[in-house]
Amino acid sequence: MKLQHHLGGLENLGPVAYEPRVFVEDWEQRIFGIHVAMMGLSTHLGDAVPQYPIEDVPSAFSSVWTWADLRKGAEAMHPFAYFQYRYYEKWLGGIGGFFVSQGYITEEELEAKAAEYLHDPGLELPEGGDERIDDQVIRYLREGDTPRQGPAQSPAFAIGDRVTVKDVPPTDHTRLPGNLRGRTGTVERVFEGDYGYFCSTGPDGIGEPMPVYAVRFEPTDLWGELAEPGAVLYGELYQAYLTHAMEEQQ
């Protein structure tokens, strides 16, 4: 199992760091901006609902980059490192590594350039570039990339159904919170339409369009004697993660 897939309910972590700022260091803003630009220039947007003219955008970026790619990187980390590094440090590691592994840049030129900026932090960034790149990124921010696809097919579960969460095989990426595996809850809402995911998660089971449900879990069914009274957890779960509860099948 991956610790990153099972954070919910992990014990003994101590107090929460209530840091209200979004960016705790100025540099973090830059990696956030780069990530958003990559999502807005991702080649998969040519097939997205707004049908972005991505092939006509004069950017050298020719890859798919979505939340799934960023998340996969974080989920691939050593679990201790996941806790060691701050949020945007993980982004910087993952995104820098991506551009090197895909051949856009080399580790050597990144190191050399970083040494220049480390030596002289006041050194300016290069200027210029084709404005149509920025226009596409801003258009993506304004119009988005919905995972909803096609009309709703007949959902397998209805409101009020008792459902048990499958214990699907662990994969490099999932949208199933680990603390819900094997647990039984009640369908409280069937979302309209079917929802795909950025990529196939293989034996984990999501990717193709499918119904999604809001499932209500009672605290004692999740946490046993550690449960807080009256604290109900809702999971938003893809149909592939659910099966009819055993108690209903009898």
């Binding site: 780069i34 630009a37 856009y104 050194l123 960034l125």
Partner: peptide, 25 residues
């Protein structure tokens, strides 16, 4: 800070983004 600035500079030089993209985001 130096590594992210280096990454942004290289991405601008190589035409992945422009010198204004991150600021606009």
């Amino acid at each position: 800070a130096a590594r992210v600035r280096a990454l942004e500079a290289l991405l601008i030089e190589k035409g992945v983004i422009t010198g204004a993209t991150v600021d606009k985001v």
